[in-house]
Design a protein around this nucleic acid. Sequence first.
DNA 1: CTCAAAAATTCCGAAAGTATTCT
DNA 2: CAGAATACTTTCGGAATTTTTGA
Length: 937
Amino acid sequence: MSSSDDDVPLAKRSSKTNGPSSPKAKAKSVVLPTRVSKAANAKADKEYDEMDVDGLGKNAPQSTSISNGPVKESSDDPGRPKRKGRKPAIKEETDSDSDAPLTKRRRTTNGTSKSASAASSASPKASPKVSKSVSPSSARMPSTIITGGTDDSDSDVPIAASKLSKEKAQIMKEENQLSRKLEAEDKKAAAAKKRKATVVKKVEDSEDSDVPLAKGKRRAAPAKKANGVKKEEESDDDTPLVKRPRATKAATVKKEPAVKKETKGKGRAKKSETPATTNGEADEGEEEEGEEEYKWWEQPETDGTIKWTTLEHNGVLFPPPYEPLPSGVKMLYNRVPMTLPVEAEEIAGFFGAMLETPHAKNPKFVENFFKDFQEILKESGGARNPEGKKVAIKEFSKCDFAPMFNYFEAKKLEKKALSTAEKKALKQEKEEAEKKYTYCLLDGRKEKVGNFRIEPPGLFRGRGDHPKTGKVKKRVLPEQVTLNIGENTPVPPPPPGHQWGGIQHDDKVTWLATWKENINGNIKYVMLAANSSLKGMSDFKKFEKARELKKHIGRIRDDYTKEMRSIVMADRQRATAMYLIDVLALRAGNEKGEDEADTVGCCSLRFEHVTLEPPNKLVFDFLGKDSIRYHDTVEVTPQVFKNIKIFKKAPKGPGDMIFDRLNTTDLNEHLRSYMPGLSAKVFRTYNASFTMQREMKKIPNEGSVHDKYAAYNEANRMVAILCNHQRTVSTSHEASLQKATEKIKALRYQKLRLKRQILFLDPKRKKKDPDFFKPDPDIDDEDWVKEHQKALIEQEREKITKKFEKENEKLAADGDKEQKASVLEERLEVLKEMEADFKKENKTGTVEPKGRAVTVEKIEANLEKMEERIRKQEIEVKVKDDNKTVALGTSKINYIDPRLTVMFCKKYNVPIEKLFTKTLRDKFKWALESADENWEF
DNA sequence: CTCAAAAATTCCGAAAGTATTCT
DNA sequence: CAGAATACTTTCGGAATTTTTGA
């Protein structure tokens, strides 16, 4: 164990960028030899392992293929070689027949390494053809031998161990020690653990944090004042963030608005609680009037395979049928309005509605759409011109959907123009219609249903470079929908004239309805909402599992650190992959099909996705889930660096898998051997929550609520960065940033003027305190000051003029006579004064304070306030800018154990409303009550 | 204070993942 | 066992809603 202390996994991340990456290298795909038997495999592993390592560094092609630019592959970029680049590359080599099995080749080695029989008997795609072609650059590499095992010490790799982040190493070391400690204690406690049965709210051991306690804890004492820990909290006691467990109802209500008001401070009064619809109905949220709430987290634990005993619901809501367009609204073909069969018109309308979206400019989207459109057109009888003659719709470019687009826009406007009352009525109507679908009865309890609406037809909006984007997503008929419902409960009637596709009573699943979508053949489900008990429980379990990993992580890390030197290539790859998943929080990376966007995760990384940057950095550049780019340069341990070098060795080239002996199933199977239920994704949860906790611990318990809130967000941000949660910068961002920066400058100028006022009153100050009057570098620019002064005058002018006009309008409306222009002139005299003042100011460097009884002290007080405002603004701008590409929400919703946030709120006295929106509070209500200020992940 | 416009935040839809089970 | 089927989580962008701003 101790041996591992030196090679703790660590990686230092630097420069995550979003900029365009290098142009794609000419792809040259190479197929690795096929392994034939286990023995042979092992032998091959050995050979593989002994291949040259050091030679690679200099000569290997290190280009990436991600090439084109923006974070998100924007689909309208015609020149993107990504996928295209890969296929031809393989084609070149295949020289066998064309397109069919092509791309499969890139995974050939993977597929065949597993089983001998599969390899020999397998389909052409797994052809054991060994390519002799080797990329020119690597052809003549010098050969250095690494033997397995012992002499594979780290010393033969150029290291810069000292450069590796000490801090991180330390953290991980501690983490591992803790883990081992936990493991040990866990064993000890194992015996005692047995008697978990009865609830008993034990106050227990709050002084200790890393108690191993597994399950029992979750019911432990909410907010017992027992150990008098919290003082201040006592004072505002009537809003404890934690409900007393015994209070089944009563206590639950009210409190929320109370806290909210408190939080709001200034804004309060306003609407506070009123907007809660008032329609009398369900009033959602606020704890169901009087109805008693089921707290599953206070119930004894269940095994979880049975999801319900009784289940009642009203089925699903289908989208309204298609409403044909008015006869005047038609697609034009060759400028001639076409009458389309309704089926086709609907499809055309889908496209028409999207005319101004980027999709409509994406060639793939257009192509797919048009193909489907033509087909449907053919099936339904074809388009007809005004004379009633059939017209073949052959070319997309001759289609003009503008009339449709305009029609939809007009409709939108029309809707927008409705009065508030009308809108409200409309909304209410809709809600009324949906009402019965929004809840179901699960074990007799009312639970909210999530997506009870069947997805409406439309054009498939695949993300990234999806081969099927733009295809028609068909309308779902009741016949395609299967319901899952309790036995002996009435089956909701299908829409008139229809039948359900099927009815089942499976209590081992949570869905209420399912259907198959026509684009990818994916199965869709109607499930309960996030705040339901079922979702809550599995969320809770997810986090508990991640916490459980804490006890094993040390051992796991030790193991993979060791196995990274294994002679068995598969093991070495697995260990290396585990490192990446653990340290970089990569996703597992399941295999994907040809008809999906080309995105990867850890196991599916290919040659071109990782570049070596000696001595010990790896550059990752690939598209991950949702085609979000992962681009990062990471410092890794020498062994990891070396391994990747080996995994990328010739004859591998672009298009080939880095982990060719590994897949997610193997990986997860291995992980399961450490801990039941452990899989790759748990590491993401674990590391995210762990990071959050670590960052939180750094936050000082001082300052304003706003400060703490900002600090929390900063910690949250760290987690989001770890998980690579990005968002696209909104178009308005640049502008709003500009505006904010300008605002700061304006404030700085105001500050300058205050100083100049002091100087006016006390000219000697400058000598006494030259530092104080040092020019502000940010507004040093004389031109800017002059411009700004002009702008201020302009502003004033507008203000006065507008006011004047408004007054006149009013006078006119009242039938009175308008004021003469001379009145305005007169009022605008002030501007001249201003101008003169500025002139004087610029000349003398002082400002005459206006108003009476101005003292230096008062100005100084103002100055301080001004500085505070400036500071605040600046921080705001910085945060805004830092966060422009980082999405905090995803980690908050999915990765950060909500009990950490609850703990933070209690410990730092921050109202939970600041950190959790209503839906989040609702979703995490189990956490609100089960963590106190000492809770630890 | 009120109103509308703008900006920010929150919620929602559905696509895109992971993981396990079935065939 | 590979590949398909299944079930469930995660993820983003954009719509909807709320808050802020700026008269």
